[in-house]
Design a protein around this nucleic acid. Structure first.
Length: 462
RNA sequence: GGUGGGAUGGCCGAGAGGCGAGGCUCAGGACUGCAAAUCCUGCUACACGGGUUCAAAUCCCGUUCCCACCUCCA
């Protein structure tokens, strides 16, 4: 039993073997902090958070790098639009991303490097590319990668240079300076009013792709295990990262993983389409743990077709599982431990087959509920532990402090009040005054609590 | 034009030659003062047309439709 994973480079699922036994280095392309995140961005974070948690659960020591790109064309553009310095805009949205990740229990990366903090590494990398004849500086101070000087190009997307649509680049000047129309900018010369850093080729700022090549190398080395990101980064971003790093003589990532999108009405969620769904909007509809459950429930390489109904349905499914765990904890008199069921491990090892893993969880819950009814506490404990262990891998353990912290202060007072009411209702039921009993129950349920009568007495939950 | 991914029951969502994944909804039953929760039973689907095969949702050929990327993108 061992982990197999897809690799976009080969389009095959193959056994995962780390470069260094027991350790895994992962680089995930994080946010370009130019606007608030939508659920598609966060889905990517969740998909690869599940990968990370599963690797940890499997005994690996994981170094997880997720970058922040805090300088690019869009950031400069939006900063003008929002009438603030570009660095203020970048920081503002970085905080929004960080908060969204935290609300959905995405583990903070081992390190979160910012592009602007790694100009030195970028300049070194560009210099090396020029030395090796893979890149060239032009008269105005731009530096381009010469894609036809590479041994290989477009290995990830499977395209041919000549098949690419000619660039819609309207900048006639840069077009005339480039050796090939497909050459892309490693470094952009300074323009009036834009930020710039000094280099041997003059003042300027980074091109879009160079930061990831530089930062991945800085923290994970010249060769590392996994590079991940969204499907739409395959070309040009990841293709160009490979070009830059291989061109400089570095092996770079051994395996590439790409997550699919969240779609609405069959279309990709996109800032430019304006069909985005914000986290804080959805959190008015369901709890964070339920939104996380939903976003993590489809296979990472499958599109997830969003609808409010699908979200609600998924939340109902989660509550059944959560309700089982609460029932088990009450009956056992303790919170179950975390354990990994064999079938769950088998599903996760199969290229993170989360949907199959969810089927396993459903069976565990059914078995566990039967054990609870049969008062078989040993079996109940085992099933509950396996359910909790599975939820923990998916980042949805109800006892994870991420979810409980905001309820902590009120819980004692609240449960005391509810218990008082339930005691009155029990007294009414005992004297067969069902009208009063039902009135009390209605008053409690109208506040959004659920009352369940069990042989051991009433139980309530939110 | 080039490259890639899709179409599965009322809905969501797996599977990739042979035992109805799973969930949600719905119907019936057990339990219950009534509910709720739980459990049991039921609802036999794979875009279309051909073909290969003892056997096809799965492989092959053709067709229709959808989506994405081709230098802004998770």
């Amino acid at each position: 039993m061992s982990l197999t994973l897809y690799n976009t480079l080969t389009r095959e699922i193959t056994p995962f073997t780390p470069i260094e036994s027991g350790k895994v280095g992962i680089y995930l392309c994080g946010a370009t902090v130019q606007a608030p995140p939508h659920i598609g961005h966060i889905r990517s974070g969740i998909n690869f958070d599940i990968l990370r948690r599963w690797l940890i659960a499997s005994g690996y020591c994981v170094t997880f790098i997720r970058n922040v790109t805090d300088i690019d064309d869009k950031i400069l553009h939006n900063a003008i639009h929002e009438e603030m310095p570009w660095w203020a805009l970048a920081q503002k949205y970085e905080r929004v991303f960080t908060a969204a990740y935290a609300e959905l229990n995405v583990l903070p990366p081992t390190y979160e490097p910012r592009a602007t903090g790694h100009i030195t590494q970028m300049v070194e990398l560009i210099a090396r590319l020029i030395e090796r004849g893979k890149a060239y500086a032009v008269a105005n101070g731009d530096v381009y990668l010469d894609v036809r000087a590479l041994d290989e190009y477009l290995t990830l997307s499977g395209q041919k240079i000549d098949d690419l649509q000619s660039s819609p680049d309207t900048d006639e000047l840069s077009l005339s300076l480039k050796k090939n129309p497909q050459d892309f900018a490693l470094w952009k010369s300074a323009k009036p009013g834009e930020p710039s850093w000094p280099t041997p080729w003059g003042n300027g700022r980074p091109g879009w792709h160079i930061e990831c090549s530089a930062m991945a190398q800085a923290y994970l080395g010249e060769k590392f295990d996994i590079h991940a990101g969204g499907l739409d980064l395959i070309f040009p971003h990841h293709e160009n990262e490979i070009a830059q790093s291989n061109g400089a003589g570095y092996p770079f990532a051994q395996r590439w993983l790409h997550n699919a999108w969240v779609t609405t009405a069959g279309e990709k969620m996109s800032k430019s389409l304006g069909n985005t769904l914000r986290i804080h909007e959805l959190l008015k509809r369901v709890r964070g743990i339920e939104l996380r459950w939903y976003l993590g429930s489809a296979h990472y390489r499958s599109m997830l077709e969003y609808s409010p109904e699908a979200l609600d349905e998924s939340a109902v499914n989660f509550r059944r599982i959560e309700s089982f765990l609460k029932r088990a904890a009450a009956q056992l008199g303790k919170v179950p431990e975390r354990a990994i069921a064999d079938d769950f491990a088998k599903a996760m090892d199969d290229d993170l087959a989360v949907p199959a893993a969810l089927a396993v969880i459903s069976e565990l819950v059914r078995d566990g509920n039967n054990a609870a009814t049969a008062k078989d506490n040993a079996l109940l404990d085992r099933k509950a532990s396996e359910v909790r262990g599975a939820l923990a891998v998916l980042g949805c353990d109800p006892w994870d402090t991420t979810w409980s912290s905001n309820e902590a202060g009120l819980s004692d007072v609240l449960s005391g009040l509810v218990k008082t009411l339930l005691d009155e209702r029990e007294a009414a039921r005992a004297r067969k005054d069902f009208a009063s009993a039902d009135r009390i129950r209605d008053s409690i349920t109208s506040l959004g609590l659920t009352i369940e009568d069990t042989p051991e007495g009433p139980r309530w939950s939110k």
